[in-house]
């Protein structure tokens, strides 16, 4: 199994300036609510939650199935429109009773990276194309995008899989490529939905260590939806979602 190598993205991944701003808020959620349906059938999935996440932080979103974790992560990821409240991403007010930006997809392309439970790589693109797709949609120069893809893959220990198709990768390799894809657009936030669910214990731990490392080295806020209580010690903060209510859990010091 390949393990992460020290990051050497000197050319392409901004580091130094951002390292100094770890206390800067990247996600600010204020009284955010989401209600599905109307009238008697209305279901309040998220109930007026408020929290802030800062640069370089790793935050676990814990909670039982149906508690509202996915709804919360899709609202932060500008996929699901909230019903009420305010959402600020990277200092920009995104939602205040309605979307305050015209193109949520552009915001996702430019500021958010996603990691999914089952890697969700595009099967008809090879590893390099999966990674360069978003930067190229952002009009990044083709050569620069490719160079960065190579650097990311090397960093994540799957540099030899550049031309491979997702179907030729193991579960762990696929998840590493998915992580590389989420980093390709220099995001401010990475939203991960149970990224270790499809991996065995060792590989899951390896991926979580990697995310933790990325958060500190890349100065990116990482929010991870997880069921796996074993991973909790690895996170800086824990947000527990229960029946739509989000509360911050005090972390036990070992």
């Amino acid at each position: 199994m390949a393990y992460a190598q020290p990051l050497k993205l000197t050319l392409l991944v901004p580091l130094e300036d951002e390292m100094k701003n770890t206390s800067q808020s990247v996600i600010k959620v204020e009284q955010l609510s989401k209600t599905y349906g109307k009238g008697e059938n209305a279901v309040k999935a998220i109930k007026e939650c408020s929290f802030e996440i800062f640069k370089g932080e790793t935050v676990a979103l814990l909670g039982p199935s149906g508690s509202g974790k996915t709804t919360l992560i899709t609202m932060i990821g500008c996929i699901t429109e909230p019903t009420h409240g305010k959402l600020t991403l990277d200092g920009e007010l995104i939602y205040d009773q309605k979307w305050r930006i015209s193109d949520t997809r552009q915001l996702r392309r430019e500021k958010i990276g996603f990691i999914f439970q089952s890697h969700n790589l595009i099967p008809f693109l090879n590893v390099e194309e999966n990674i360069t797709l978003v930067p190229l949609m952002n009009q990044t120069n083709h050569l620069i995008a490719r160079k960065k893809a190579k650097e990311l893959l090397d960093y994540l220990g799957v540099g030899d899989k550049l031309s491979a198709k997702p179907s030729q990768l193991s579960g762990g390799q696929s998840q590493r490529v998915a992580i590389a894809r989420s980093l390709a657009n220099n995001p401010k936030i990475i939203l991960a939905d149970e990224p270790t669910a499809a991996l065995d214990g060792e590989r899951a731990l390896s991926v979580m260590h990697l995310l933790k490392k990325l958060a500190s080295e890349q100065n990116v806020a990482i929010v991870v939806v997880t069921h796996d209580e074993r991973m909790i010690p690895l996170f800086d903060r824990i947000l527990r979602v229960n029946d739509g209510i989000v509360s911050e859990e005090t972390k036990q010091t070992p």
Binding site: G77, I79, R105, Q106, L107, R108, R109, E110, I112, F114, F116, N120, I122, P123, F124, L133, V134, M137, R181
Partner: peptide, 16 residues
């Protein structure tokens, strides 16, 4: 469907 959903999620425009 799934690939299109992923594309939309990672920010691909409708035009793409």
């Amino acid at each position: 469907i799934k690939e299109i959903a992923i594309l939309k999620l990672i920010g691909a425009s409708n035009a793409v």
